[in-house]
């Protein structure tokens, strides 16, 4: 069909830019930072090679595993929060009238706001004395439920997860709406003729047709929430007493507050490894259902 040299030329033109960017901005930094993980380095002056010590310290650090657990809480909250909410809203917002478009936009809106502002606003909402949540609880007589939401280690990780969920429902909602509109009209009509309406239609027709999309969204959701950093960083900085530390803030704090570049790099490498493992597991689990 086409000569091989011409194909090679085409490949170079189409793929080379992407591959170059990929290696420079993704691959090389990964290897570079895992290499720094073998050094004791304060960022200034000379680095000393110390073998696997940093990596060992990471694996043995209880804070690292606590951070990992906190990351899993965010992943869990995102998957269990964002996906059902987005799916539910998508089922309700299938029409495209003015009103529904307004609600859709409202749900999408949080995405356009910068994280610094997200952090500050939710700081307001969670404030123990002035905050909306405690004010509401007090007004309905649930005084005993009021808390310092971001300071109390028993609840603060869940409190931090709420703005993250809120922040990113929008894009998933849009993906789901698109998927529903993609369900061929004949199927729905056939279902109607069979008398399938309401819940039955939902369970037997709509959801099975969307399973593929739901899977993709779950994967996106997992990888997205593994990357969570900004929100936690601005709301708590990982504190108090490292109770809301997640992997990325743990890495950041060790690198930029404690100036342990080597140790921070070792954490980075571990984060990458853990992320890949998690994604792999979720891929395998979902593939089996096919």
């Amino acid at each position: 069909m086409q000569s091989s040299s011409k194909l090679r030329g085409l490949l170079v033109i189409t793929l080379l830019p992407a591959l170059l960017l990929y290696s420079f901005f993704v691959i090389i930094p990964i290897f570079w930072s895992s290499y720094y993980g073998f050094f004791e380095w304060s960022g200034l002056g000379d680095a000393t090679f110390i073998g696997f010590q940093n990596y060992l310290e990471v694996v043995q650090s209880p804070i690292f595993w606590r951070s990992f657990k906190n990351n899993l809480i965010i992943v869990g909250a995102s998957v269990l929060g964002q996906v059902p909410i987005a799916l539910g809203l998508a089922l309700l917002l299938r029409k495209s009238n003015m009103f529904q478009r307004f609600v859709r936009s409202a749900v999408f809106l949080p995405m356009v706001i910068s994280t610094v502002v997200v952090g500050l606003i939710w700081g307001y909402i969670f404030d123990p004395e002035l905050g909306v949540i405690n004010a509401v609880l007090r007004s309905v007589g649930l005084e005993s439920w009021t808390r310092a939401w971001l300071a109390d280690p028993e609840v603060n990780m869940y409190a931090v997860a709420v703005p993250i969920i809120w922040n990113y429902i929008g894009p998933y909602l849009i993906i789901f709406i698109a998927a529903i509109q993609n369900i061929p009209g004949e199927i729905e009509e056939a279902a109607l003729l069979d008398g399938a309406t309401g819940w039955r239609k939902l369970v037997y027709i709509i959801l099975p047709n969307m399973w593929g999309t739901i899977k993709v969204v779950i994967i996106l959701c997992i990888s997205g929430s593994l990357k969570a950093f900004d929100q936690v960083f601005v709301m708590t900085g990982g504190g108090p007493a490292q109770s809301t530390e997640i992997l990325a803030t743990y890495m950041y704090n060790n690198t930029f507050l404690v100036y342990r570049y080597g140790f921070g790099s070792a954490i980075s490498t571990m984060i990458i490894i853990l992320s890949l493992i998690l994604i792999l597991i979720s891929q395998v689990l979902m593939r089996r259902k096919d």
């Binding site: 700081g123 969670f126 404030d127 123990p128 004395e129 310092a148 939401w149 971001l150 300071a151 603060n156 708590t236 504190g239 108090p240 007493a241």
Partner: peptide, 9 residues
């Protein structure tokens, strides 16, 4: 200290 001093700026 007030409750939530650890989350106050």
């Amino acid at each position: 200290y007030p409750e939530g001093a650890n989350s106050m700026d």
